[in-house]
């Protein structure tokens, strides 16, 4: 600070203590909540993951034993596999269908507005309502699918108790529930594509597929990457649908990692073990986001 700046200094010394810290008062309420409800629980979870703990507290310090146990626990490994399988079933479908809907419905007509509203409506329902609806569609004993099957003289299929079909059924339910989000993200991106590109294409008499692949898709490729990342992170967190529709069965075929954490924590009260599994999921989500970001940022501009 300049020595000759005496007046400014005296003014600062009068108002500075209050002025310097008053700003903190505005952010203090949130920072307290942030520390108490996000940072502290994160630390508690990390610490618990190195202990053997139950409902009544820490029983023993076990270092990394929980993590070692996780990676030799066939149920956990199956849960990790199931989670990746579920992501593979849902993320490409959500991305492609969402993009297709956005391409078709990206216009100002009244009918497009109605259809956009229809495709987004299920997004606002809670997971418990969504699973209730779909169980009533899928149950072999009088569900809509069974009624339709009977109409065609077929035997009803027990989707949710079939080890091969249960996960696709949960994936279908999830796609039905979540298709609105990718659609609106793609719609927002399509609005940003410069119109003069299309006008130039029209002058050239470019075909529809050519416009799609040479103009539209390159123009929104960042959004495509973004949607894939968001959906991977969202679908990694599969919980309610599996818990409510199949309970993880049959034979663990639909148990995802989050359901594993929930059951280890609140059914078996192995809180340390559950906390370790939660850290693994946290790492999986972080790696997925970083890997996708890396891949999408490496692509050469078209």
């Amino acid at each position: 600070m300049a020595m000759g700046d005496a007046t400014l200094r005296s003014r600062l010394s009068q108002s500075a203590p209050w002025r310097r810290w008053s700003g903190l008062l505005f952010v203090a309420p949130y920072l307290l909540l942030f520390a108490a409800m996000l940072i502290l629980p994160l630390i508690i979870g990390l610490r618990l993951s190195t202990t053997r703990s139950d409902l009544f507290g820490v029983k023993a310090e076990v270092g990394l034993e929980n993590y070692a146990r996780l990676f030799s626990d066939p149920v956990f490994l199956k849960a990790v596999g199931n989670t990746f399988y579920f992501v593979a079933l849902t993320v490409p479908a959500l991305t492609i269908i969402g993009l297709a809907l956005a391409l078709v419905l990206n216009n100002a007509s009244r009918w497009s507005a109605v259809l956009r509203a229809v495709f987004f409506a299920s997004t606002v329902l809670s997971v418990t309502v969504v699973t209730l609806i779909w169980r009533l569609v899928l149950i072999p004993d009088g569900g809509l699918a069974a009624v339709i099957a009977r109409l065609f003289g077929q035997a009803p299929i027990a989707f949710l108790s079939d080890p091969v079909l249960a996960m696709p059924a949960i994936a279908l339910t999830t796609i039905w529930w979540g298709i609105g989000l990718p659609m609106v993200l793609f719609l927002a991106a399509l609005q940003q594509v410069p119109r003069d590109l299309y006008e130039a294409a029209a002058l050239d008499n470019a075909s529809r597929p050519r416009i799609l692949f040479s103009i539209t898709l390159p123009a929104i490729r960042r959004t495509i990457a973004l949607v894939v990342i968001i959906e991977i992170i969202l679908q990694f967190q599969l919980f309610g649908q599996a818990q409510l529709m199949t309970g993880g069965g049959p034979n663990n075929s639909t148990r995802p990692v989050v359901l594993f954490i929930y059951e280890a924590g609140w059914k078996q009260w192995q809180l340390g073990y559950a906390a370790a599994a939660a850290q693994v999921l946290f790492a999986m989500i972080a790696i997925a986001a970083m890997a996708q970001y890396y891949v999408s940022s490496r692509k050469e501009p078209a």
Binding site: P41, L42, I44, L281
Partner: peptide
């Protein structure tokens, strides 16, 4: 507003966006 640690605190809060519910729910 200007106050000590403003920039760092904001970056810390932004990192909070990346914390999934599963990582904090047990705590």
């Amino acid at each position: 507003l200007e106050f000590p640690g403003r920039k760092i605190l904001f970056v810390v809060v932004l990192f909070g966006l990346a914390i999934p519910e599963q990582a904090v729910i047990i705590g």
